[in-house]
Amino acid sequence: MTGGLLLMKSLVEKDLKVRYKRSFLGFLWFLLKPLFSMVVYTIVFTRIIKFGGAIEHFSLFLLTGLLPWNFFAASLSASTKILLENQKLIRSIYFPRVALPISSVIANAIHMLMAMGVLEILLIAFGHTPNLSIVTLPIAVILLAAMTSGFSMMISIGNVYYRDVSQFLEVILLAWFYASPVIYPLGTGIISGKMEAVIKFNPVAGAMEIFHSTMYYGTWPELWAWISLVAWTIVILTAGLLIFKRMEPSVVKEL
């Protein structure tokens, strides 16, 4: 195993081992958080604003979107701290520092995958049997994780220079959440056609669409979703790697 992979593996293991120390429910929290938000959104959108009623098993639909979204949002939030938390380490020994944001994203992705396994069982139990398209889902997970890593690299660097980044990110993520097809479906007329066109340019829209199609609807996702996901992943990951590499020497001194 090459050094980089080995390092990544060890950091992911550490992350998984350490995260739920002294936590009674441990890993379950990764499932419980989306479950709680699911309950809230279900009540809001079926009892208060009545649009969710049009979708069968709306809570399962919500959960299908909330799992990848929570992975995405949690990874981005965590990345603001990742360099600052490890500053002593960074300033004391040399290692490829890009492993820090990447391994944190991978640890989150592993949680997401486990939660998705539980969700898939629920979906099948309620009659949402997947078709063959489910085999493409791992590819979407990998691409989403790669894109998330790209964002994490940029944010982790940015937050070293400007602590405003972490504050700003909270606001952005709130807006981003509603601008992504997480809690509403596309192509069903709930959102106007013009809005949909705009929303499809959202970097995470493709991934959300693929999750909903393959897991909830059991259909093949539309082509635009794959094009969007692949294109955005290439752009964001490349940008993230370039920025990280370019800024790394100054960041080490800045910490």
Binding site: G3, S10, L11, K14, K17, F95
Partner: peptide, 15 residues
Amino acid sequence: LTGAENIFLNGALLG
């Protein structure tokens, strides 16, 4: 992490 776990983690950092 325990002493041994830390040794493995640090070993990975050192390659």
